[in-house]
């Protein structure tokens, strides 16, 4: 006997993501789901962001890693509330894992919450956690063809940060090629070149955050 089911496989995840989203809305948080390969510079970016945002916007971070609390320890040094989720074997954060961190996060005292996903270019793009935007880092040591190899992540992201541009002269990474490849997949993607080592481009990234936070508040006002 055949039974009609017609159910979205990620329905349970999406429902919890919706609950997270309602909580973020109540607390007026701009929420970003930050994704990249391992070692592209997610935690370095957040350290620099904590420094640069001080006095402008209040930052909070939820970090996902397979093991260890090193990343949260690094970020906590900047007086930013940081909660580490160790995923065990899971290669991505899902809405339920993020929900489990939220009671420990002073959401009413932060403006921007960054969910630092597990380093992986495939799986994290699949699971919404309640974010306003997905954003990603591509570092120049990874190769400019990555958008074509991992289209979903580039397609889903509102912003691509090209990191480690201070090293570009030592690689065969072509910045224009990477940008063109990303825009083929996602014509609307914002792109900012940065170096977390030299600080280049970080002001533009902070401007992006401030603008998107303002946009979120305006959206809530008009809703």
């Amino acid at each position: 006997m055949k039974i009609n089911v017609m159910q979205d496989v990620l329905q349970a995840n999406d429902r919890i993501a919706g609950e997270n989203r309602a909580l973020f809305k109540k607390n007026k948080n701009l929420v970003l789901n930050l994704m990249s390969s391992p070692g592209a510079g997610k935690t370095s970016l957040l350290e620099k962001t904590a420094e640069k945002l001080a006095g402008k916007l209040r930052l909070g971070v939820v970090v996902g890693d397979i093991e260890t609390t090193r990343d949260a320890d690094r970020i906590s040094k900047y007086n930013v509330p940081a909660i580490q989720l160790t995923t065990g074997n899971a290669c991505h954060l899902d809405a339920n894992m993020v929900a489990s961190a939220l009671p420990h996060m002073p959401l009413d005292k932060i403006d921007v919450l960054v969910v630092e996903n597990v380093g992986n270019l495939v799986c994290p793009a699949e699971f919404v956690v309640g974010e306003d935007h997905k954003i990603m880092i591509l570092s120049v040591t990874e190769g400019d063809e990555k958008p074509l190899k991992y289209p979903l992540m580039f397609h889903e992201s509102a912003l691509m940060l090209i990191n480690k541009i201070d090293l570009v002269q030592y690689t065969n990474f072509k910045i224009d090629e990477a940008k063109a490849n990303a825009r083929k997949i996602n014509p609307d993607i914002d792109i900012i070149e940065i170096s977390c080592t030299t600080g280049e481009g970080l002001d533009r990234w902070v401007d992006w955050l401030v603008a998107h936070h303002r946009k979120k508040l305006d959206g809530l006002k008009n809703a």
Binding site: I3, V5, Q7, V9, L10, A12, C91, V122, C123, E126
Partner: peptide, 23 residues
């Protein structure tokens, strides 16, 4: 390997639907 998590969800959906029909 997001396939594992997705496979788990598929199983739960199928089991729920089957139980409702007394399968």
């Amino acid at each position: 390997m997001h396939e594992m998590g997705i496979a788990q969800n598929i199983l739960e959906i199928a089991l729920d639907a089957a139980k409702k029909e007394g399968a």
